[in-house]
């Protein structure tokens, strides 16, 4: 039943390694977008402008309740109908970045809300501006409780990158598919992809936990 071919495995490995690079790059770019945009979405929900708060909250809810793959299709295939023609990479990064930004905004919101009211009041008593309060007092305290969630979504975004294969981004699954159909052999490429994902996800999760502890110590919390 098992007829694993080692020479075939070695032969396809360079292509898979290259695709791993693309997968990591996609996850990284998507994550950076999500981390920054998520913070903006979280802060937008805390402005005194209730219309803005409402719109952002509804958008976050909407994106969180629809599948990522639909959003990827939307940006890539429906965009051109409105004159927005984007490459697979750009579409993918926008869709995945926005999707995870919505999840991260909730993580940030939780973190910000966990900072006691007295911290805001102490910052007001020191006559800080709103920007100074966030930058110097609130965000530094909101990050440690948010780190676990942020780490989970980093691994999550990495595991979701295969969805980009549907619009032709040459990440791991896309490459494995291509190798498979060229050679009529799927066992080795898919197995290798699984191993590669495992080999990256597991240590990453551990490292995130170490990092969390480091940040807490660093902030004296």
């Amino acid at each position: 039943m098992f007829d694993w071919k080692w020479d075939f495995t070695w032969e396809i490995l360079p292509r898979l390694v290259q695709a791993t690079g693309n997968t990591l790059l996609a996850a990284l770019i998507g994550y950076v977008i999500a981390v920054v945009l998520g913070l903006i979405l979280a802060l937008a929900q805390r402005t005194p402008y209730s219309a803005l708060t409402l719109i952002v909250r509804e958008m976050v809810e909407f994106i969180r309740s629809t599948p990522l793959i639909l959003q990827i299709f939307f940006v890539f295939y429906v965009g051109p109908q409105f004159g927005v023609r984007l490459s697979p990479w750009t579409s993918g990064m926008i869709a995945i970045g926005l999707h995870y930004a919505c999840y991260l905004s909730e993580v940030y919101r939780g973190g910000i809300e966990s900072v006691p009211k007295g911290q805001w009041e102490a910052a007001t008593a020191l006559n800080m501006t709103v920007a100074q309060k966030y930058r110097r007092v609130i965000i530094p305290q909101a990050i440690p409780p948010a780190l676990a969630g942020m780490g989970n979504y980093l691994v999550g975004i990495f595991k979701d990158t295969p969805m980009l294969s549907v619009i032709g981004v040459a990440e791991l699954i896309h490459t494995a598919n291509a190798i498979g159909s060229e050679n009529y052999r799927f066992l080795e490429p898919y197995t290798m992809v699984g191993i590669i994902f495992l080999a990256i996800s597991l240590p990453a999760a551990g490292m995130i936990r170490l990092f969390e502890g480091y940040v807490r110590r660093k902030l004296g919390l």
């Binding site: 007295g118 009041e121 102490a122 008593a125 020191l126 006559n127 800080m128 100074q132 902030l219 004296g220």
Partner: peptide
């Protein structure tokens, strides 16, 4: 507000700053 300072029942020091940094924060930033 610059004329007024306040101390609270529960201190409300910034936990991520040392005692000195807590004191320097307002003078430097504000």
């Amino acid at each position: 507000r610059a004329d007024i300072g306040m101390c609270f029942q529960h201190f409300n020091l910034f936990p991520h700053m040392t005692a000195l940094e807590n004191c320097m924060e307002g003078p430097v930033q504000v």
